[in-house]
Design a protein around this nucleic acid. Structure first.
Length: 918
RNA sequence: GCGCGCUUAGCUCAGUGGUAGAGCGACUCGUUUACACCGAGUAGGCCCGGGGUUCGAUCCCUCGAGCGCGCACCA
């Protein structure tokens, strides 16, 4: 053996080669055998589920910390002979990804609200898949020894299936319910947020004292005035008891109003004047006051819309943003003399969106909620009894405190990207059904554009062909429908509809039948006329008449007549074809009438043309008949789950439906135990303390609920990564250290070590390039120690085979025995530290030992013996050095896997350090 | 308002019931064939303040100051 080592360790070459070697060895997989040898299935399991990283960007230092700590644990326990599973995954990260993607769209001058669900989904899907691929490459570069054969994405069918089962179980147990509440609404992202996603920031705003008849009240939100439905005072407040139950007359901006005064405990007599206005639609507290006084006062009066603009009965302020309206209204109140005073510099907490910082608008909206109290109880107990231990221990208090005060969890999100909520609503009566069995899907589609559409010319039953735009639209919708296995197309036989249907048939291969009863409303003598022409002839009011349900156009049809005709046709098709997936291609007027019948709309509501642009469509699901009304037409909730609802199930969802081999045989019991049986409860959950509530607490709750067992026994929380000046790393500050970038320069091992040593659980992690450089130097040190030992071996004429021969016949000096005893002690200390999650102590200890004891003292002391004349003594000295080196490599391996494996193989080419016995 | 932390060498942080340690930085010396990505050495700390428990506290208790964070429907 005279393999020369370069004086410097070439990280890049070694890292690539060694990682491939490990992958090829199969030792990453749970089935991959280990140091203990023997029957792998007898080994005690050890499992970590990797927190699925968001597939919307690249890895940063925080990820590197997590991956390093997990890899240390996994490598350690693998070397200790456990059957280890470290299951990697990625998260679709619903809202977070949507936000990232919105920014991307914005840069491209696009907007998701102008995109169809399918289109948006597909683009984000591709985007996340691309990111996922890159992220996994990075994970590998960091040396993660995870089981890639079990990689899971949060949108894998088996995960969605499990999430749906849980949702249904919760629903059946009464732990999930749909309710109308005032929820946190972000006007920018146009979705509801959970309470955890609200960031309260202190702001200074004027506090307006407004006269309400004989009373005066203080508010920061005068613009919600128009939504007031009552006034409230504390029932114990003697100043106002005489008003309770009375109606008072109030001078408002839009005239005189009458409000009832109610007594409610929620009112703090000490705040402002002790009187509040009740605006149930736009304030959660007020909503609750209304709930408590439902019989006395009117309910929701919505005056702010989803874009955060005033709407409804707000006079001239309609269309203004809340902030603009506030100023104008304040001025107006001043003018009217109803503004008593303004307290400036009033400090209060304002709810903002944690992502964009915009002020949230409380809006009433029906959403799905999880009832938390019954889930929180067992979760608290699990920690209290030590079934789940959190490191650092103090986090257990934080955890319990949060669970104690927990409120119901809104899991509905109004975005496309996510797991769609498996709730269907009966279209005629609104009854909900979870995980409905859908027999077939029906699409009612409007034809593509014609030139007459563009000119606003009445078409009626005239045969007008599609124009170029219309043909394109037809092609687009056809492509979209392809995904739904359309069996049959039923179309109006008018040319524009016919052509649209044929385009769909061409793409889907479905059969087409034509039905003249699906023709557009017969507009009689108006046919072929321009809108302006009709207006000139009949006056401006003609359109009111035109919209009238029973108005007959001379020579044509009334809406009522149309409705009768198309409903008969639709019903006939439904009884004949309800089991088939069908596309009905027809006209705007027809769709309005069908929609009116299906949804029980009033004639006025039926005139709403939203969603009925050319090739716009409505989607219907046909399921078993509704228990309540007997209808069989359903519509799925368009909302998706809060991502944390699905990732909260991650530990069991990843294991539940995966066998331990790919030989899954349908309808047959798995011969081998499933992963769930083998590895659940998992051993450790390692993640950042910032998601203790978001994720950890929810995993405990949902894990206990679904499986009856805790999802993991230990939780290790790492801190936020900061730069050397304690600043949070952020792109805008430009102080971000890219883990892969520095790994490229200094080596992965150095980065890993720098992230571990000196950092404790729950405390923020300070990293600097200087520190990484320090551990790069350490890697070089180890390398040179190995070089020295190898050179000493050369001098002894030892080749690879002779390395590690037994100590028999060797005469060890007292000093040698002492050194070896110290090594043993270090080993046991390092072992204990890792077992107790004290990675910083373990890493620090071994660093110090290798450098300042082994290299500086022991090696130095051995030099005269190695080159001295006494060959027996030199042998002994060499033996000791090699022993300490090999054992040190083992101890270091979880921390610095690459350099240790590389050196180890110089000494034991037939073995691999990754599975050496610890 | 309630809760949780932190305060130790110039900087960033470990740590222990018996008056302290690492990394980086500073200074001095050293061209010793494992390593200058090194070695030998030096300087530098009323371990936030007051009180208490203790033979003894930086460490335990208590009060306080400063800083950070989390939770909370005060309009």
């Amino acid at each position: 053996m005279s393999e020369e080592l370069e004086p410097r360790y070439d990280t890049k070459e070694v890292e690539e080669r060694i990682y491939r070697l490990w992958e090829k060895s199969g030792f990453f997989s749970a089935e991959g055998g280990s140091a203990s040898g023997g029957n792998p299935d007898k080994r005690k399991p050890y499992c970590i589920i990797m927190p699925p990283n968001n597939a919307n960007g690249l890895l940063h230092m925080g990820h590197a910390v997590g991956l390093t700590l997990q890899d240390i644990l996994i490598r350690f326990w693998r070397m200790r002979g456990r059957k280890t599973l470290w299951l990697p995954g990625a998260d679709h990260a619903g809202f977070e990804t949507q936000v990232v993607f919105d920014k991307k769209l914005d840069k491209e001058g696009r907007n998701r609200f102008a995109m169809s669900r399918e289109e948006l989904w597909k683009e984000i899907w591709d985007f996340t898949q691309e990111n996922k691929k890159k992220m996994y490459e990075q994970t590998k570069k960091l040396g993660a020894s995870c089981d890639w054969s079990r990689e899971t994405f949060t949108l894998d069918p088996k995960i969605i299936e499990t999430v749906y089962e849980t949702f249904e179980k919760l629903y059946k147990d009464g732990l999930v319910y749909r309710d109308l509440k005032v929820i946190n609404w972000c006007p920018k992202h146009r979705t509801a947020l959970s309470d955890l996603e609200v960031k309260y920031v202190e702001r200074e705003d004027p506090l307006y004292y407004i006269k309400y008849g004989p009373l005066t009240l203080a508010t920061v939100r005068p613009e919600t005035k128009f939504g007031d439905t009552a006034l409230a005072v504390n029932p114990k407040d003697k100043r106002y008891t005489k008003y309770i139950g009375k109606e008072i007359e109030v001078k408002g901006i839009l005239g005189l109003l009458k409000f009832k005064v109610v007594g409610d405990e929620a009112v703090d007599p000490k705040f402002g004047t002790g009187v509040v206005k009740v605006t149930p639609a736009h304030d959660a507290t007020d909503f609750e006051i209304w709930q408590r006084h439902k019989n006395e006062i009117p309910g929701l009066k919505i005056i702010i819309n989803e874009a955060g603009k005033l709407t409804g009965e707000v006079g001239e302020y309609a269309g203004l943003k809340v902030a603009e309206a506030r100023e104008k209204i304040a001025a107006k109140m001043q003018e009217l003399g109803i503004l008593e005073k303004v307290e400036t510099n009033y400090k209060h907490q304002v709810a903002t969106c944690y992502k964009c910082g915009n002020t949230l608008e409380p809006l009433p909206r029906p959403q799905w909620f999880v009832k938390m109290k019954p889930l929180a109880e067992p979760a608290m107990k699990a920690v209290k009894t030590g079934k789940v231990k959190i490191h650092p221990k103090r986090s257990e208090k934080v955890y319990s405190h949060w669970l104690k005060n927990i409120r119901d969890w809104n899991i509905s999100r109004q975005i496309v990207w996510g797991i769609r909520i498996p709730a269907w609503f009966c279209i005629s009566c609104g009854e909900s059904k979870i995980n409905a069995k859908i027999k077939s899907k029906w699409f009612i589609i409007r034809h593509g554009e014609t030139d007459w559409n563009k000119e606003f010319r009445m078409m009626g039953k005239e045969d007008i062909p599609l124009n170029e735009a219309g043909r394109k639209q037809a092609h687009e919708i056809a492509k979209k429908l392809k995904a739904y296995n359309i069996d049959l197309i039923i179309a109006s036989d008018l040319l524009r509809s016919k052509q649209t249907a044929e385009a769909i048939a061409k793409e889907t291969g479905a059969e087409v039948i034509f039905d003249k009863n699906l023709r557009e409303r017969d507009v009689g003598k108006w046919q072929g006329k321009l809108r302006d022409e009709i207006e000139q002839e009949h006056g401006k009011d003609v359109w009111k008449m035109w919209r009238d349900y029973s108005f007959d156009i001379a020579g044509g049809e009334s809406w009522a007549g149309l409705e009768k005709r198309v409903w008969e046709s639709f019903s006939g098709h439904k009884s004949a074809h309800s089991h088939r997936n069908i596309a009905i291609v027809t006209h705007g007027g027809v769709i309005r009438m069908l929609r009116k019948r299906i949804r029980n709309l009033s004639p006025d509501e039926a005139m709403d043309i939203r969603g009925l642009e050319n090739t716009g469509f409505i989607e219907l699901d046909i399921s078993e008949r509704c228990n309540k009304c007997g209808g069989d037409l359903y519509e799925q909730d368009p909302d998706v789950f809060d991502t944390w609802f699905s990732s909260g199930q991650w530990p069991f969802a990843t294991l539940l439906k995966s066998g331990s081999s790919k030989s899954k045989v349908k309808n047959q019991k798995l011969k081998i135990r499933s992963d769930f049986e083998t590895f659940y409860p998992t051993d450790v959950m390692e993640t950042g303390y910032d998601i203790l509530f978001f994720w950890v607490a929810r995993m405990v709750m949902l894990g206990l609920y679904r499986t009856g067992k805790v999802p993991f026994k230990d939780v290790y929380l790492h801190g936020l990564v900061r730069d050397k000046d304690r600043q949070k790393m952020s792109k805008s500050k430009g102080n971000v250290i890219d883990p892969l970038g520095v790994a490229d320069i200094y080596g992965t091992d150095a980065v890993r070590m720098a992230l571990v040593v000196g950092n404790t659980a729950g405390n923020d992690i300070v990293i600097s390039e200087d520190k990484i450089r320090g551990y790069r130097n350490f890697a070089t040190k180890i390398w040179n120690v190995a070089r020295f030992v190898l050179m000493a071996a050369d001098e002894r004429g030892l080749n690879a085979e002779k390395h590690g021969k037994s100590r028999r016949g060797l005469v060890l000096s007292k000093e040698d025995e002492k050194d070896l005893a110290q090594l043993k002690k270090i080993q046991s200390q390092v072992t204990k530290h890792i077992e107790k999650f004290e990675f910083h102590l373990a890493g620090g200890k071994i660093y110090h030992y290798v450098w300042h004891t082994f290299a500086d003292k022991i090696i130095e002391a051995s030099k005269p013996r190695l080159s001295g004349g006494n060959s027996k003594d030199a042998e002994a000295a060499y033996f000791k050095l090699e022993t300490i080196l090999i054992e040190s490599l083992k101890m270091l391996h979880p921390f610095m896997p690459y350099v240790t494996e590389e050196i180890f193989q110089k000494f034991r080419p037939e073995k691999m350090l990754i599975v050496e016995k610890w």
